[in-house]
Design a protein around this nucleic acid. Structure first.
Lengths: 208, 208
DNA sequence: CAGGAATTCAAACGACGGTTTGAAAAGTGG
DNA sequence: CCACTTTTCAAACCGTCGTTTGAATTCCTG
């Protein structure tokens, strides 16, 4: 309702999103957040009911913007050929490799959750991951129209894994012994290569 | 050299390995370790020079046993057909899906490191991951003998990613909306399916 | 078995974590 | 402009953390 209180709330959210992405929940102290946001220490408890509530909120908006961002292009994919659609999907998945934008920050927050998910995160996944996984499922379904549901679901996870291994281990892959360069050209090549492997891998399943 | 001190050292190592795997470095307190190991609190500082030193040691043996476990079967793979070798490799990668054995504990410790690697871990990877990645590279090389080095390296990472997505997200995949069952039969089927996709994906690269 | 080194132990230390407090300041509506 | 609510603030509180300490105990060796 009131304006001035919203700006501190926003300052906290911005700082928290960056710090949580950088160091995770445990690795980020309230004092670090308020220092970056230049607000008083008690402001977090006042506006978010403590660190938990703040994290919950950060996680919530990250999840929302991410799925919206993906599902917004779901329609476009349907008008393409299955190969082109899958290629576009892979390209979008590898996008975080490029920069330190909002998208890659959100991905990084989720990465912190993969080892030992918060209850908050578990619920978000159970509720909101279904449409996203369904999108991936629809993509692979076009390559295996006669496959059973389990195969399609596994194929969807499998597809996501091929992209996420590069996104997740970006920083390690950049160093030795792999020393992967990650400029726009390289990411484009990577997208094309992976897409090709995926398409080739899926196609024989229903032609054999 | 002296015997009795070795048993407390070992008790600490066992407890620490389990707790670090469960909750990560930050999430595991020295007091929790000594409680589980039933030793005095100061024992960790005496035997390992503090929490850092203990973690370093746990990480070291985990890495060693893991790579030894993999490289021990590297020779066997060479006598198989490329398809069979790759299938065996995938099967081995998916092994942690089954139980809470030592192998999956070690994998879990490494998973904690993927988001923000410790210096200790970075060094271990830089030093000792090369042979393991080389093994994966050799496997895919047999499917693309004429490919350049970058393509082979990326293919090796790509291969590992297809397995690790299931290992890493095991617990989440077990719940909704995926609800993946993970008994021996299911893991066997998963290995076969992924192997098939990988083989089909790689093969056309040099036949086209 | 004595002597010294190695190991165990309970207790405390200092630092840092999230949260609470109560008063001051700023904003808002009549 | 005044009463009232909302928001900010500095300080302190309380718990947990990793580490240190110095004495007690156990172990090994000559």
């Amino acid at each position: 309702m009131t304006r001035p209180s919203e700006v501190t709330r926003d300052r906290i959210m911005r700082a928290a999103e960056r710090l949580f992405a950088e160091s995770g929940y445990d690795g980020t102290s309230i004092r670090a957040i308020v220092a970056k946001a230049k607000v008083n220490q008690a402001a977090i408890n006042y506006h978010f009911d403590g660190k938990d509530g703040l994290y919950r909120e950060v996680l919530r908006v990250a999840f929302r913007t991410l799925t919206e961002h993906q599902l917004a292009h779901a329609e476009e994919l349907k008008s393409m050929s299955r190969e082109e659609a899958l290629s576009q999907f892979v390209r979008r998945q590898l996008q975080p490799l490029l920069g330190r934008d909002e998208y890659s920050r959100h991905m990084r927050i989720f990465n912190w959750e993969t080892v030992q998910p918060t209850t908050v995160f578990r619920n978000l996944v159970a509720e909101e991951a279904a449409p996203f996984l369904g999108l991936a499922g629809d993509l692979v379904r076009r390559f295996m129209p006669d496959a059973d549901q389990r195969t399609v679901t596994v194929a969807a996870v499998w597809l996501l894994g091929q992209c996420s291994v590069f996104v997740r281990n970006r920083e390690q892959l950049a160093g030795p012994p792999v020393s992967l360069v990650l400029d726009e050209e390289a990411v484009e090549w990577l997208s094309a290569t992976i897409s090709h492997w995926v398409v080739s891998g899926l196609r024989p399943l229903h032609t054999n």
